[in-house]
């Protein structure tokens, strides 16, 4: 299966035995008022990642270049961008994996509003996070502790690898290509969060109706782009989104499951509004609007 993480290097390209002497990065420069690609050519030192080269350009040629970064080790999720059109972490993309015989395009994440150059506004993702109720364990055991088996948390631990780079949110066409869905859609990273909580052996909340009515899991058409771009190799679609979709089917669309709940006197799915009222956004009545944010200094 094709993956966005690995990029083929053409035979005889500069990435083989004789590296090119220079490399050209075509960086997006601009802000909310507009922008353009500009080429920057620097010496090809070899053994670098894209972020290293961006930093050298910043140090030597464009000191006003805006780029967000932090750990340079693929763990903070700050340096997300689109390299030759593919959403990736700049710090985890080796120059040797790219064809340097032509300029390498580095653009900001095109799913988010631009702030400047390679830096985008990720407010939406944090607004979504405030709409998901956190961990709600039941009462502890008589000795005051909680116990769970490793086999019960194996599934959940995969989701803890998420570094919140938001590459999955950026590539998800539901909001990338249809911004009007943002107020009613959570996106892959937060379906992972939902699955992490729903599959947790000690959690007691039922977020299935919330997932369907408030967080728009039905909008996801499982085309797996989120999985393809995940730098942590989380199987977002197979292990998080589809299990959540199947749980929503249990709650909403399966007549046998409905009949079973009636016969066995099991509780009905918890209404979305009830679960939403437990969240920070629910308590304050926070809503998401796709109108542009007014910058601190007034309209741009």
């Amino acid at each position: 299966m094709a993956t966005l993480v690995q990029e083929a290097v053409p035979a005889g390209g500069a990435a083989t035995s004789s590296p090119a002497e220079t490399v050209t990065l075509r960086l997006w420069r601009g802000d909310a008022r507009g922008g353009e690609f500009r080429d920057y050519t620097v010496e090809n030192l070899g053994g670098e990642v894209v972020l290293d080269v961006v930093h050298r350009i910043q140090a030597e040629q464009a000191p006003d270049l805006a780029v967000r970064w932090n750990c340079k080790a693929g763990k903070c999720g700050s340096c997300s961008a689109e390299i030759n059109g593919k959403p990736r972490l700049m710090c985890m993309t080796r120059m040797s994996s790219l064809d340097v015989s032509e300029p390498i395009t580095v653009s900001p994440m095109r799913g988010n509003p631009i702030i400047r150059d390679l830096v985008t506004d990720v407010s939406y993702h944090f607004a979504v996070a405030r709409r998901i109720p956190g961990f709600h364990p039941g009462p502890p055991e008589p000795d005051g502790t909680y116990r769970m088996s490793q086999v019960d948390v194996d599934r959940v631990q995969e989701f803890r690898k998420c570094i919140e780079c938001f590459l999955c949110q950026n590539v998800c066409h539901v909001i990338r290509d249809h911004e009007d869905n943002k107020p009613a859609y959570a996106g892959p990273r937060f379906f992972v969060r939902l699955a992490e909580l729903e599959l947790h052996p000690l959690d007691t909340l039922d977020r299935r109706e919330l997932a369907a009515k408030e967080l728009g899991i039905g909008l996801c058409n499982i085309t797996k782009c989120c999985t393809e771009v995940c730098p942590e190799d989380i199987h977002i679609t197979d292990n998080a989104i589809i299990p959540m979709k199947e749980r929503v089917v249990d709650a909403r669309y399966d007549p046998i499951a409905w009949l079973g709940r009636k016969i066995l006197r099991r509780p009905a799915p918890t209404p979305a509004a009830e679960v939403a009222s437990l969240t920070p956004a629910g308590r304050s009545g926070e809503v998401i609007s796709i109108e542009p944010r007014t910058p601190p200094g007034g309209p741009a």
Binding site: A2, E7, A8, W28, G30, D31, A32, R33, G34, G35, F37, E82, N84, G85, K86, D99, T105, S107, P108, M109, R110, G111, N112, P113, I114, D117, L118, T120, D121, S123, Y124, A127, R176, D177, E179, K182, R283, S284, G285, E286, V287, I288, S289, I290, E291, P292, R293, T294
Partner: peptide, 29 residues
């Protein structure tokens, strides 16, 4: 608490989304 509105929209960076920046043969699959 007053209802708060989080504005998440605004112009995007980079060329328009209709401009494909990928260089691999993405049409093949």
């Amino acid at each position: 608490a007053r209802p708060a509105t989080v504005r998440v929209g605004g112009p995007r960076g980079g060329p328009p989304l209709s401009t494909v920046l990928r260089r691999d043969n993405w049409r093949l699959q």
